[in-house]
Write a protein that binds this DNA or RNA. Structure first.
Length: 825
RNA sequence: GGGCGAGUGGCGGAACUGGUAUACGCGUCGGUCUCAAAAACCGAUGGGAGCAAUCCUGUGAGGGUUCGAUUCCCUCCUCGCCCACCA
């Protein structure tokens, strides 16, 4: 062993190993290995800017450490990475820099890849995948056509935020403007208005029940499952149909309104009906006298965003002049239009039962409507008057004032009402879901073109000549535009011929940003396949994903859509398993040093990832991110903490000169096996923060020693390797005196060391001695020391004597290796 | 309003199925080195009383179960995330 320099030069070392590792495909995941597989997936980033964001680093580092741990445990591990590159940000950035989205990405992606390599991420780069490349989106388009053929994609008229410059925007992309009631786009600040628009939607609602039931087939945590259940929001109840009477109007056929309710048993207490402003009946049932007021109201409420409607405190609404007839008791219920009722949920019409629903009560109070109590609260049977919101009873009780339902429990009454309604043809049992169909089109350039063709006679045909590529951007189309032109402005693209050779037009909508992210993880399995989105046998080997790590905000919607898309493919026989992802873990947030979200408005608190990697080294940054706290929690960045880890790495490096063969040190040997045991179980449980602390405890012991046994040193390096891959590779090569590096002799190809259970166990314990519940003394005991021996020694202790002397010992409790507890009178 | 989760030193956080609360790290204080400072290294460090042994007190608040509660039960408060006039 040569006594080398003990000052660690991370820059040189990291550069050297980065080149060697990635040139030799050290982290390649082999298809069809004999080893058991693990597919560890981290959400793919949207590549923007010049370097991986520090938040991404926090999101990726810990799962990556786990993937390294599993590889050393003998698994064939797939840890891939790709680019979620379609979408508005690339367009906006391109406009700002006077280039095209592709050009922007061709600069950003290599930067991102380079930064991930700087971090030493054990990524199989041969599987790199980019959602905006034609060879990838060919299959996104192909899958869309399959959905369309299965009637799961359809066109609907929908209100959307429309911006002349940017096209259709999502709710969260729209901000209030400077003027009252004005709306502007989040990017660019262009004016935005509400407009009805033809949109493609995916009918995820057809899969609602399956998505619910099959949660049992996953290992998601209860929190994740609950989030999915809530998002789907399945509710059972009844649809009740009311005939509408409009004074001064005659119809050929009496109009009816259908309302969904989860509590049909309360219908004797109905005193009004409310239509959503967008409900088609509004126009039909409004009387001449009410017309102008209703129209004004509808117009005003359509201009509001969901958010504004939600925030509204008062229950506004306008009477239409018509009445609905309650089939249960022939009562006339005035029909209102009000924006607290949403068109998208249920039937878009609500029957108001103000005595048993807080919102209905507020509406009734605001509009001076009758309140009739029809359920008795078993806990407060005396409350009959309903004076305030606090008197509203929404629970289950006994039916009163309800004709043939009187005396029944809520459950019985619900059943009897439905039975009655169905017999008489007034309504039927029904189930609704909160889950909404997914809007699947954007009127923008930078997305997957929807490969459908409109024939001359109005039919829709699929275009299987895929990929259907985006037309090239030319100077002419770009001129005088604040944003990129929508596809509809590319005349050459639009014009095509149908299957009969007749002139036809193409659909010019593109798919939303999340199209590719619905299935990207399948593509990693076989990214270069041009015959299929992935080879079935390979999918059978790798799927499902074992562990999926990502943003907490994606735990519900993204995961649900991913499952939906996959379940559809499964029903088509195209993928091998029912569920795509076994387990999901979402990461917390990394805050700035000031304990607030990192924001461009406070640049002094935004961590510059490139700088910290260069200053302190990737090993230090990695280990720091693992040490800082549990993966799913939020915590602030702390540069002092990073410096400490950097010192730790240096300390480790400096110890190499003390390494010699055959050192007999029982203390170190024991500490090593204990450390190994603890780190192993902590890596299993994904507790990388405490694993690092175990490594520190061990280093604190060996750094005091004059000599370190080379075998223990090697074992320690292997355990540290997933956290700090660079320095451990350097030290590993040196301790093994390797002449030349190879994939086989890399520390990252080594097996995880095994601990000796006997040595990992403690021989003795410091345990507390309690007298009447208070710790009075410590005593050192042997492992599993018998009670008699412990008792004898304990009672001799001076400080125990003090409290026990002259008193009657009622109980003597001894929990081996844990505690002694004495109870005296 | 609903769902989920969390409240532990000055700070990030440990604590297995109830068993010595505060591991590990930061910060702070003291020391070594230095003309000095920084860096590095060594030591101390929940709060209060005491020269000390030691005692009191302490895991958001209050109560309960227990020999023993950060952990289990009840009531309340605060914060975070997701969803939300969802009938």
């Amino acid at each position: 062993m040569t006594a080398g320099n003990t000052d660690y030069n991370h820059k040189e070392t990291e550069k050297n190993w980065t080149e060697k590792w990635y040139e030799t495909d050290l982290y390649k995941a082999k298809d069809f290995s004999d080893k058991p597989k693990k597919y560890i997936l981290a959400e793919l980033p949207y590549p923007s800017g010049s370097y991986l964001h520090v938040g991404h680093m926090m999101r990726y580092t810990v799962p990556e450490i786990r993937s390294r741990y599993l590889r050393m445990q003998g698994y064939n591990v797939l840890f891939p990475m790709g680019w979620d590159s379609f979408g508005l940000p690339a367009e906006t950035f391109a406009i700002r820099t006077n280039s095209t989205p592709r050009e922007v990405l061709d600069k950003a992606i290599p930067n991102y890849k380079k930064s991930m390599m700087d971090m030493g991420y054990a990524i199989d780069w041969s599987r790199e995948m980019d959602t905006s490349k034609p060879e990838t989106y060919k299959w996104t388009q192909w899958m869309f056509l399959k959905l369309w053929e299965a009637d799961l994609a359809e066109v609907k008229e929908m209100p959307v935020w429309w911006c002349e410059e940017l096209g259709v925007l999502a709710d969260e992309e729209v901000l209030p403007g400077d003027k009252e009631g004005e709306k502007v786009s989040e990017r660019g600040g262009y004016p935005v208005e509400r407009k009805m628009f033809k949109q493609w939607i995916l009918k995820i609602t057809d899969y609602a029940d399956k998505l619910l039931e099959d949660l049992d087939k996953t290992d998601y945590t209860d929190a994740v499952k609950q989030a999915q259940i809530n998002w789907i929001g399945k509710k059972e109840g009844a649809n009740i149909t009311y005939e509408i009477e409009t004074p001064s109007k005659t119809y050929e056929k009496t109009p009816t309104v259908t309302c969904f309710t989860t509590r049909p048993d309360t219908n004797f207490g109905a005193t009004f009906v409310v239509l959503a402003p967008k409900h088609p009946l509004v126009e039909k049932v409004t009387t001449a006298e009410q017309k102008s007021e209703v129209e004004k109201y509808v117009k005003r409420s359509l201009a509001k965003s969901e958010l504004e409607r939600t925030k509204a405190k008062e229950k506004t609404g306008v009477f239409t002049g018509s009445y609905a007839i309650n089939p249960l008791n022939d009562k006339k219920l005035p029909v209102y239009v009000a924006d607290y009722v949403m068109y998208n949920y249920g039937t878009g019409a609500v029957v108001g039962v103000p005595a048993h629903d807080k919102r209905d009560f507020e509406f009734a109070k605001a509009h001076d409507l009758e309140v009739v109590r029809v359920v008795e609260d078993p806990e407060n049977p005396d409350v009959t008057e309903i004076a305030s919101l606090d008197d509203i009873f929404e629970g289950e009780g006994i039916a009163i004032n309800s004709g043939f339902l009187n005396g029944l429990t809520t459950k019985e009454a619900i059943e009897k009402t439905i039975q009655y309604l169905e017999e008489k043809g007034f309504g039927e049992k029904n189930t609704t879901y909160k889950l909404r169909d997914q809007i699947w089109s954007r009127q923008r350039y930078w997305g997957e073109p929807i490969p459908l063709i409109y024939t001359k006679d109005g039919k829709i045909e699929p275009d299987y000549d895929l990929p259907l590529e985006l037309p090239e951007l030319k100077e002419e189309v770009l001129k005088d535009k604040a944003g990129f032109p929508a596809l509809s402005e590319f005349e050459d693209f639009k014009k095509t011929t149908d299957s009969q050779g007749n002139p036809a037009t193409r659909e010019t909508d593109t798919m939303p940003t999340w199209a590719g992210s619905n299935w990207y993880y399948i593509r990693y399995i076989d990214p270069k396949n041009n015959e299929a989105f992935a080879d079935f046998e390979k999918m059978k080997y790798w799927l499902p994903v074992d562990e999926y790590y990502g943003d907490a905000g994606h735990t519900t919607a993204h995961l649900l859509y991913t499952r939906f898309w996959y379940k559809f493919l499964y029903d088509q026989g195209l993928v091998p398993t029912e569920e795509p992802i076994k387990y999901r873990m979402s990461g917390g947030l990394l805050l700035g040093e000031d304990n607030r979200k990192m924001s461009k408005s406070r640049p002094e608190y935004v961590v510059n990832p490139k700088e910290v990697v260069q200053t302190y080294g990737a090993d230090a940054v990695r280990t720091y991110l693992a040490f800082i706290g549990p993966y799913d929690e939020t915590y602030p960045w702390n540069t002092e903490g990073l410096k400490a880890i950097s010192r730790f790495i240096n300390t480790v490096y400096g110890m190499k000169n003390k390494v010699v063969a055959d050192v007999n040190d029982k203390e170190v040997e024991k500490a090593y096996h204990q450390m190994l045991k603890n780190v192993t179980s902590m890596c299993e449980d994904f507790k990388m923060n405490t694993a690092v602390s175990q490594l520190m405890i061990f280093v604190n012991i060996i750094k005091k020693k004059k000599q370190i046994d080379s075998e223990i040193w090697k074992g320690f390096l292997k355990v540290l390797a997933p956290f700090a891959p660079f320095v451990t590779e350097e030290l590993w090569q040196e301790v093994n005196d390797a002449k030349e590096w190879s994939v086989e002799n890399s520390i990252h190809s080594q097996a995880w060391p095994k601990y000796n259970e006997k040595l990992a166990k403690k021989d003795s314990f410091q345990i507390g001695v309690q007298v009447n519940g208070k710790v009075r003394e410590d005593i050192e005991i042997d492992r599993d020391e018998p009670e008699e021996s412990v008792k004898k020694r304990v009672l001799e202790l001076e400080n125990v004597q003090k409290y026990v002397k002259g008193k009657n010992i009622k109980r003597f409790i001894y929990v081996p290796n844990k505690i002694v507890s004495i109870v005296v009178e």
